[in-house]
Design a protein around this nucleic acid. Structure first.
Lengths: 163, 163
DNA sequence: ACGTTATAGTTACATATGAAACCAATAGCA
DNA sequence: TGCTATTGGTTTCATATGTAACTATAACGT
């Protein structure tokens, strides 16, 4: 009797997820699309990855950080930072020396070449961000900021702790 | 003269990005944190990845899809789908046969075991989503939905086209 | 029918990412 | 001091992911 074949018994009894309305899914799509779009610009042009760019961005703001501090500020794990740094130093964009008082720590900073690249990429990144934001009106933009603040803050408390 | 050493000449001349206020960065953190938190639940318990779960979710809603159609509905690329399916079929959670009229196409669906698992995971996923959303008040939730709709819609138009 | 082009899906290769093991140096403390 | 626990950082290994190449089948135009 109950055998129409195609939709068998789905929806009703099983309450399947509707992916397109599922928050984590939507966030993930949006995040990837946007990061992708923005990164595309410099990825090819400078042969640099998103993680490497993030490292450069914090070093632009804070001279002399250690790898650990970079990891904290980028929310990347230390392995990722280590690898990014290896490439950046190799490429001559970041300088690395050893801390005087603690020889485990490295002391990091942008080189001249690093600064040059930074000064070209940063405005590009900001411009792309503006393009995305331009799709929202002023009120929506305010709400978005507020909502992200709130969710990120909440997750920070919940989500375990280390990194 | 201009050599105080530490903050060298940053901020002023170079206008570095403030990562913690940069939209793509914030989205990426949030998306990862949330997906991670939700996935954690079933990852370990069922030994299944996010991509595999997404495939199962669409097959729960639409019986008999082809791999291509799954790819479209999950925004995954066909290689990722192919791999996810290989594992799912192997694990006995998804059944795969060949389309009668077009022997290139596969015809996919959840097996009994697949349904059983689905019926356990789907409510969990929804519960986790609610937990996240609970951090926002009703008004914020409405805005979030609206903003995501708008941005996703906009990106869909812009962002190239294939997949 | 026949050759060309397009489509569904898989495989191969190269690169990225995460977890755990590991080395070196420092901090704590008996 | 001397021993143990911690911390900064790198290396290793296993797994994941993306791109391009490839196979099989179907669609199209003549």
């Amino acid at each position: 009797m109950t055998s129409k074949r195609k939709p068998a018994h789905p929806t009703a009894e099983h309450a399947p997820l509707q992916l397109e309305h599922f928050l984590p899914y939507r966030l993930s799509i949006l995040s990837n699309t946007i990061s992708q779009a923005i990164a595309e610009d410099y990825q090819r042009r400078y042969d640099i990855s998103v993680t490497e760019w993030r490292v450069m961005a914090v070093l632009a703001r804070f001279e002399g950080l250690s790898a650990r501090q970079v990891a904290d500020r980028t929310a990347m794990d230390k392995v990722a930072v280590s690898r990014a740094l290896a490439r950046l130093v190799e490429a001559g964009r970041v300088s690395r020396s050893t801390h005087d008082d603690d020889k485990r720590r490295s002391v990091l900073g942008l080189t001249e070449a690093g600064w040059t690249m930074h000064d070209e990429v940063a405005p590009m990144a900001r411009a792309r961000e503006r393009e995305v934001l331009a799709k929202l009106d002023a009120e929506e933009q305010r709400w978005l900021t507020r909502i992200l603040d709130k969710l990120l803050e909440a997750e920070r408390e919940t989500g375990s702790g280390e990194r």
